[in-house]
Computed example of a mutant assay.
Amino acid sequence: MKLVLLPGDGIGREISSATRLVLEAAACRAGIPLEIRELPIGHDSLARYGTTVSDEVVQEVRASDGLILGPTATMDFRDPARGELNPSMFFRKQFDLFANIRPSRTFEGIASRAGQFDLVIVRENTEGFYADRNMELGSGEMLVTSDVAISIRRITRQACERIAKAAFELAETRRRRVTFVHKANVLKISDGLFLEVCREVASGYPHIETNDYLIDAMAAHVVRDPSRFDVIVTTNMYGDILSDLTAELSGSLGLGSSLNVGSNFAMAQAAHGSAPDIAGQDIANPASLILSAAQLLAWFGRRQSSQLHIDAGQAISSALEELLRQGAWTRDVGGKLGTAAAADALCSAIRVNR
């Protein structure tokens, strides 16, 4: 398996280093060959090559089996004409990574704000309100006058259909419940289309229970009782907000993983930002990127019918779960370890639990 690792900005280098060590330990344990090519992205790339995403990086990613993207300083990159591309948007759009799979679950040993739960948000990744990915040319956000700003929302039948199918296929491997989240009472045409297509897709899965909620009501329901939900499917912006909310309800946004999946490629990505205020202090929680990389291993294993890769991903998740139960992790979740020490502890746990 050949992976490209792009550390990113802020805490990206620290958590990417931790993730690489853990991946190598899991690959060694499983007896699978693993090659990881590390390249600059974000500010490092902008300083070296005049662009946040270089041609070399794109070529290497195309030739790889998967990508691990560390957090980047997205707010700093405002002018694509000056090479300031949003790396996350770039790869999602370039490789048509239409599904953002965001599991949220509670862990023994980590205080939960809303009881025990285990759910997955399946977020459409390529259109919606996001101005950087809903137009063929230019931005979907416009300043008409100095006092008037307009943003265009794109919703297509094709995108709705494939994200709904992804949600139902995932639900078949879990508790067989799918919830559609929308705002069709107000956005009658665009969210109306999303809801219509979800219901059409549902007719092909009669054994799976379905329901739907308005986004505002859904935010209240996941705070009150997230355990009632299994797979939640929704459009881009709603999914972005709900996935951060449910990750925080599980104990910390730093425990939420994220995998961006297309028809033939996948990108693991930390669910949080680059946190420049704590960069270089060895206190960042690397769990989000590590768990995302574990998802990537499992995705590759399913595509290649390789149980060894699936087991390697599970070994990472299980070992981390045990460390969290013991309180042997970073300070933000009640532990005492720094970033590097947490990675070392996880590597040791993976090697021991054969």
Rank of each mutant, 00 (worst) to 15 (best):
residue 233 V to I: 08
residue 225 D to E: 15
residue 225 D to C: 13
residue 244 D to Y: 08
residue 253 L to N: 06
residue 265 F to D: 01
residue 229 F to I: 11
residue 235 T to P: 00
residue 223 V to L: 14
residue 228 R to Y: 11
residue 231 V to I: 15
residue 237 M to T: 12
residue 231 V to E: 02
residue 231 V to S: 03
residue 235 T to S: 14
residue 244 D to I: 10
residue 233 V to H: 01
residue 262 G to K: 05
residue 245 L to V: 14
residue 264 N to P: 00
residue 258 S to Q: 11
residue 233 V to C: 12
residue 222 V to T: 13
residue 253 L to I: 15
residue 260 N to I: 08
residue 251 G to C: 10
residue 222 V to G: 01
residue 244 D to V: 09
residue 255 L to K: 03
residue 227 S to K: 13
residue 254 G to I: 07
residue 234 T to I: 02
residue 222 V to H: 01
residue 252 S to Y: 05
residue 254 G to Y: 02
residue 230 D to F: 07
residue 229 F to R: 07
residue 265 F to N: 03
residue 240 D to I: 06
residue 229 F to V: 10
residue 221 H to T: 08
residue 244 D to N: 15
residue 242 L to K: 01
residue 244 D to T: 10
residue 258 S to Y: 04
residue 230 D to H: 10
residue 247 A to C: 13
residue 247 A to M: 06
residue 232 I to E: 04
residue 237 M to Y: 08
residue 252 S to F: 03
residue 233 V to N: 00
residue 250 S to V: 03
residue 250 S to R: 07
residue 221 H to L: 14
residue 236 N to D: 09
residue 256 G to I: 06
residue 227 S to N: 12
residue 259 L to V: 04
residue 255 L to W: 02
residue 230 D to G: 09
residue 239 G to F: 02
residue 243 S to Q: 04
residue 230 D to Y: 05
residue 248 E to S: 14
residue 252 S to P: 08
residue 231 V to N: 02
residue 245 L to T: 13
residue 244 D to K: 07
residue 267 M to T: 10
residue 266 A to M: 07
residue 234 T to R: 00
residue 242 L to A: 02
residue 225 D to T: 12
residue 264 N to L: 09
residue 251 G to W: 03
residue 221 H to W: 12
residue 238 Y to M: 13
residue 222 V to F: 10
residue 222 V to R: 02
residue 252 S to W: 05
residue 250 S to F: 01
residue 221 H to V: 12
residue 267 M to N: 06
residue 234 T to K: 00
residue 235 T to N: 13
residue 239 G to M: 05
residue 233 V to G: 00
residue 237 M to D: 04
residue 223 V to T: 14
residue 263 S to N: 14
residue 225 D to G: 10
residue 246 T to E: 06
residue 236 N to Y: 04
residue 221 H to N: 13
residue 236 N to L: 08
residue 254 G to K: 04
residue 251 G to F: 04
